[in-house]
Computed example of a mutant assay.
Amino acid sequence: MRLFLTICFVALTSVISLAQSTERRAKSAVYSASSEWQRVTLRPTSRLTTNSSGVSPSTATTSPVVQPVDRLEPTVASSSAPASPDFRPAFIGDFATSRNGWRSGNKGDYNYQVSMGRYNIRKLNVNTTQVAFSAVELPTDINLNRADIFTIKVDVLADSGQVPTGGLLFGVQDSLNYCAFTLNAKGEVSVSRVINGQATSDYLSGRYIVPGVAVEKNRDRLMIKRSGEILRFYINAQEIRTSPYSLKVFPGNGIGLMASGYWTSFQKLSVTLGP
């Protein structure tokens, strides 16, 4: 009887010990599952990649959430420079190369040459009555008829001791339709508008008159300024006596140069929009 009781006691003790061991393991599993680390939820991301040193990141990261926005239309900027509040489209005749398409070589009674920052026009036939004419189209972002404000200027040079004979062409469509601001050998000035080869009465019919300002030998600067519906004309920064003029529609949108002397050279040609 005593042996039976001893066997029962040992068996009961083993059962209780096994139950307690099972309970401890269960409690351990429950504790791990309920820890704060386990409750952190990460957003799924794309497959991990190696960093710049070739080592894969050891921890996952979440991708930033990008809010949708309206797509912006691209801004059309001028070819000469990036758009900005202070940007003024400009055409520069640097005369370093003939890239703008200026006339070159022997054409008719004149020789045309772009060289060393100058555009030289030399008369080949001293008895000619023809006038040298060279013009190019302005860029599309410079429209002389639409621009409310613009400035055109150029330096005109002649042989030593001579008044330059030539000047600016503007609003050029072709050799028969254009506007001109020119000097002659007497130091007189002409402002003209030519349509189909004939000077109109808009700007003194192309007649040469005394400008009322000093005209220099060898070099003079011609300048034209538009402000609204008014055109002003200057020689060496002085406004000529017949200026200003009421604006008339230009035949085209070209810029050019005209000369009739034995040798005439042009420098620093520019067309600029804005004040």
Rank of each mutant, 00 (worst) to 15 (best):
A19C: 11
D202C: 03
C8H: 01
R221L: 03
L183S: 09
P139G: 06
F91S: 07
Q20M: 10
P211T: 01
L247G: 03
P164G: 03
S98D: 15
R226S: 02
G261L: 03
P275E: 12
K268I: 00
F181Y: 14
D159G: 07
I7V: 07
K123C: 01
P44F: 12
S205I: 00
P211H: 02
K107A: 04
Y119Q: 09
S56K: 13
N143Y: 01
E36S: 08
E23C: 07
D86S: 12
R241A: 11
L42Q: 13
S17E: 12
M1A: 12
T165M: 13
T75V: 10
V126G: 02
Y31H: 13
L42A: 07
T49Y: 10
A26V: 04
S80I: 03
M116L: 13
G228Q: 06
L176C: 09
A199E: 00
T264R: 05
T75N: 15
R24L: 14
T45C: 13
N196I: 06
A19W: 13
E137C: 06
F170H: 01
G166V: 02
V271C: 08
T264V: 07
E73G: 06
R219Y: 02
A96S: 09
Q173K: 15
T242P: 14
R118Y: 14
W37L: 11
